[in-house]
Each structure stands twice: as structure tokens, then as C-alpha cells.
Design a protein around this nucleic acid. Structure first.
Lengths: 214, 214
DNA sequence: TGGCCTACCAAACAATTGTTTGATACTATT
DNA sequence: AATAGTATCAAACAATTGTTTGGTAGGCCA
């Protein structure tokens, strides 16, 4: 049977799309990397855009199978669950540059959404959000509203996201030495966890009354 | 004197680069928008890339003059200063789509830094960070360390950044109605401010001892 | 006036890139 | 064995795009 060139092409396309973007990535480069003929993209996928879509879905499927959502004992206290969650999310985002092209693809979808965006959110993002919400559920009053729980969740996610999205800015803002010493993954997990826990536990709980909006 | 075509080109280039990116934006489109000849880019700027740089610098200069950093009475309590700061930052990020191309350019620089990145950080980002740090200074113990203050600042910035970077994801995750009602600018300012204040005021202050890192 | 420089323009150029084509080997089916 | 279908390939194609060119108009100065 043929040498699975279709598969080789998708696999080669992922990293290339990830770090050069849709436009800068050329079919020629992808096919060369996949050791496939130039025409194989149009033969197997129709055009460049559907190859991109397929590559994103492939990356997404990979992430799903290699990063299981939750895996802690069922009796883990919610505070520790949150720490685990944050650790996992930060790990995914700050992945060493070898194999984090999946995340890079995701970032691109964020600021320049394509058709792949919707399925990514439903299959990949939403389950994570649900998990985070269920952790929060054990720490906040039962009667808290939908949107407040979501706002808290986004506050936590945002803190993690920052170190990926604004990574280059952080590098320029924080001196090398300081960064190596206090902004590595472990310290960031600790900080974000404690910052968030302190916030969650001391947040005022006015749910029905409107708040001052200056 | 000539019709300032050089200026017209930079001005036209900004929005186009912002929403199509460097590659998708064509010199022809820019020149058409600027009502300038196709050759003017190469005549006035040398090549496409330096035009891009000039456009970014131009956008950046505009932002600087139209969004003054702080303007609150000197006796404003730090809690309210923080609220103002967050409001200003969110406003800049969620700007109505007409004139927020400056921010869009910034986003692109974040995830795909060019040579313009460094000067943007120094002239635009760092002053904002300094201002935020000075606000925090009035709310945290004096002896708190450099990196912990910066981590707090990043936690605040990250929460705001999230709603811009992951905007499309939020739109898909939160139903339209809910979003219009509880995720508009005013409500987000309130939430982020209170979340951050609760965190800041209740954060443990272990500065010398290492923390658990699971 | 006559030269000189700058700004501008229409047209052409050269390189890249996505896509198509026609042929060839190979497999499976009848 | 003959046929049909699939996968692969080298080469060509067509469109786009950044860049260059040669020329024109007009201001400025000697």
C-alpha cells in the first residue's frame, strides 16, 4: 500500500503552518518536508486552505490524546485541583518550543479565527472550561450566578494566557536573571494559584444588586 | 508643496496591515487607499517592510498622544486608581472596531514580534507597567519583592488581555444574551477590579521562604 | 533661461506561489 | 491477462505581488 503520503503531508504541515502562518507557509516547503510531490496537496486535499483545516484538526486531536484533562484522586481538595489545573494549562502554553506547535496554531486561531475556530472551541476549549467551572463550584457559594463563575474562570485563564501571548513582551520587561529565577513554570503556577485563591475566597458576593460602574 | 503622499501612505497602511497582516496586505491595496501611485512605497520607504515599521511607529505615536496614561486627582485612593487603570486598559483593548487598528497591530507584534517590538515595549508598554506598579505600591507591604509586584501586575494585565486575545473564543463560549448583559466593558471593569483587589489584599506575604511547588 | 533635483506616474519586470496537466507505475478486480 | 482506478511525479500554467524603470512635470537656484 502507498506510503501514506496524505498523512505525512498533514503531519509536516502542522509545524510549518504553526510558525510561519498560513501565508508564509508554502505548499512547496510542506511537500518537501513531507517528502511528497508538489501536487499531492491538491490531489489529496483539494487546496491549501483545506489542508490547513485538516492540519489544525490533526494538531487538535493530538493534543486531546496526549493531555488528558483531569487526573487527580477524587478526594483531592479543590484548592489542589485548581493548582493542578493551572499547572496543566501553563504547561500546555509554555511548552518547550519543540512540540508546542499545536499551541501556536491555537494562538493564531485566536487572533485570526478561521473556520477551524468553532470546532476547536467546542471540542477542546469548552471541556477545559467546564472542568475549571466544576472546580470553582466546590469553592464558591452555591447560589452564585452563571456569569460570575465564568468571569472568575476567565480571570484565571487570562493570567495563564498572558505568559504565552505576551511572552516576548515579558522577556523584554523582565531582566534575564530575574526571569530565570522567579518566572519559571513552577513559580508562575504558585503565584497564579495563590493569587486566584485569594481572590476567589475574598470576593464580595453581591449577585443581585448592580455594582458601581464609575 | 507636494500633496504629502508619504504621509497618506503611512496612514492608509496602518489599518490595512492591522486587519490583514503583513503578508495579506498588498502594496497595491495600500496605495489605492492612499490615492498614491504604486511606486510611491518603494520610492518613499524603500520596501514593504520599512513601510510596515513606519506604520507601526505611526500607530504607536497616535496611541500615545490620544490616550494619556493617568489622569485622576492626586488624592484618589489607590483602589480607585486601580479601577481607572483597568478601565483605561480595557477600553484600549475593546475599542470599537473603527479605530482600534492600533491595538490590532500591537496584538500581531505580540504573537509574531518584529523589529518594531522592542521600541513598542520601551515607549508604550513599560510606562504603563510602571504606572500600574506605582498603584500597587500603595496597596502592598513596602518590603514586598520586585518579582512579586510584577507577577501581580501581570495577573491584572492578563485578565484584561484575555478579553481581547480570546475574544472570539469568549463569543463562542458565552451565549449572546448573557454576553450583552454581563460581559460588557463596565461589568468587566468591575469584575476584574474586584477580583484583583480581593487577591492583592489577601495574598499571603511569604517573600523569603520558598513555596511549595507540587 | 537652463540645469538640477524631487515627487510622481504608467508600464514593465522578475520572482514566487497555488494550481493544473498529462503521463507513468502500481494495485485490485473481472 | 486485460481493465479500471488510484497514487505519484515532473513539468507547465496562470495569477499575484514586490520591485524597478524610464519618463514627465514642476519647483528652486544660479
Amino acid at each position: 500500500m502507498k506510503d501514506q503520503t496524505q498523512l505525512r503531508v498533514v503531519q509536516a504541515a502542522g509545524p510549518i503552518f504553526a510558525d510561519k502562518g498560513f501565508d508564509r507557509a508554502t505548499i512547496r516547503e510542506i511537500c518537501t518536508a513531507a517528502e511528497a510531490n508538489l501536487a499531492s496537496v491538491n490531489y489529496h486535499f483539494g487546496d491549501k486552505e483545506t489542508l490547513y483545516l485538516e492540519a489544525v484538526r490533526h494538531a487538535h486531536a493530538l493534543k486531546m490524546e496526549q493531555v488528558p484533562l483531569s487526573q487527580w484522586p477524587s478526594n483531592t481538595p479543590p484548592e489542589e485541583q485548581l493548582r493542578f489545573f493551572i499547572r496543566a494549562m501553563l504547561s500546555r502554553m509554555l511548552g518547550t518550543d519543540e512540540l508546542d506547535w499545536g499551541t501556536r496554531l491555537l494562538m493564531r486561531e485566536m487572533i485570526e479565527p478561521t473556520i477551524a475556530c468553532k470546532s476547536i472551541v467546542e471540542d477542546f476549549i469548552r471541556p477545559q472550561l467546564q472542568l475549571l467551572l466544576s472546580i470553582l463550584d466546590e469553592m464558591v457559594p452555591q447560589n452564585i450566578s452563571f456569569h460570575r463563575k465564568h468571569q472568575m474562570a476567565f480571570s484565571i485563564v487570562g493570567q495563564c494566557l498572558h505568559y504565552r501571548v505576551a511572552r516576548e513582551f515579558v522577556n523584554l520587561l523582565i531582566p534575564e536573571k530575574e526571569r530565570a529565577e522567579h518566572f519559571d513554570r513552577n513559580h508562575l503556577v504558585d503565584h497564579i494559584t495563590e493569587f486566584s485563591l485569594a481572590a476567589i475566597k475574598n470576593l464580595p458576593i453581591p449577585d443581585s444588586s448592580e455594582k458601581k460602574t464609575s
